[in-house]
């Protein structure tokens, strides 16, 4: 599905080739292939259960594909990889856990190394710089369990970025945010991708908040994926082929709605899709 695109000059960071994955008798991914380039922000779009998290787990090396390859900068992915930063959706930490946002970020430097970290001015400056980069100084000394959704998301981004990865993966970073912090986080991620020349992959069940900043889209439905620019992928023929039944792509001002087509029980489907896509972009 990959088509010639505008950014071929940028170095490729990650490539998935024909990745399929079977888990306990079910095919979770089928022939998934796409590539991510430095400085680009890519959206991994699909509804819950489409296979987004599994694609992340494959990239992170937590699942081994049944067939196909995962290449990191042209080479097979090594197990221990500090060049991939990962931001989980939520870490569900109790408010009474003694761990500040600052400590979470510091764990990003060398959390996998043995021994107690020795206090050093260099470390502290590194953490402070990172907190400043994601605009998190205000809550640097607040417990992680007490942060709001947006604050936690920014701390986790700082945690992932501080080891200077070449690829940043974010699992549904917008899922628990209000509209205002959603825009802040999206803007921050776009800036990081451009300024630090990092390939950024964001999974989301809703593509509209990402539309203004997304260089490319990987659209996932029932374990299959299509990738390219938004215009190339979010089209009726491409998505209908992906879903296996007809879907309509509606453009409403600068928003895009994907709804089930006319031929099969569309009343119900339409209703459900609209619930899944609450009105946005009004502000």
């Amino acid at each position: 599905m990959t088509s010639p695109d505008r950014f071929d000059a940028r170095p490729e960071v990650l490539r998935l080739e024909g990745v399929s994955l079977w888990l306990s008798g079910r095919e979770i991914l089928h022939d998934v292939g796409f590539s991510l380039r430095a400085g680009e922000l890519t959206g991994l779009i699909g509804s819950n259960g489409a296979g987004k998290t599994t694609i992340f787990r494959v990239i992170l090396g937590l699942e081994t594909p049944s067939s196909g390859r995962v290449l990191f900068a042209g080479h097979p992915r090594p197990h221990r990889n500090r060049l991939i930063g990962y931001v989980p959706q939520s870490i569900g930490l109790d408010p009474d856990v003694p761990l500040r946002a600052r400590d979470l970020v510091a764990l990003g430097i060398d959390g996998d190394r043995f021994g107690i970290p020795l206090p050093s001015r260099g470390r502290r400056r590194l953490v402070d710089d990172m907190l400043e980069a994601v605009d998190a100084q205000a809550f640097a000394d607040t417990r992680v369990g007490k942060l709001s959704g947006g604050e936690l998301q920014r701390s986790l981004i700082a945690h992932a970025l501080i080891s200077q990865p070449r690829l940043l993966l974010l699992d549904e970073p917008l899922a628990s945010l209000d509209i205002r912090s959603e825009q802040e986080v999206v803007g921050l991620l776009a800036r990081i991708a451009r300024e630090q020349q990092i390939a950024v992959l964001i999974s989301a069940h809703e593509m509209n908040p990402l539309l203004p900043v997304m260089d490319r889209v990987v659209y996932v439905a029932s374990g299959r994926a299509a990738s390219g620019s938004t215009e190339e992928v979010v089209r009726e023929d491409v998505l209908s082929a992906l879903y296996g039944h007809h879907v309509d792509v509606l453009h409403l001002q600068d928003r895009i709605l994907v709804v089930a087509g006319k031929d099969e029980g569309h009343h119900l489907e339409l209703e459900r899709e609209q619930h899944a896509l609450p009105p946005r972009g009004l502000g």
């Binding site: 079977w22 888990l23 306990s24 008798g25 079910r26 095919e27």
Partner: peptide
């Protein structure tokens, strides 16, 4: 049972 299930590829 789990192993049998993954042997039969039944979705």
């Amino acid at each position: 049972k789990a192993r049998r299930q993954s042997a039969h590829a039944v979705a």
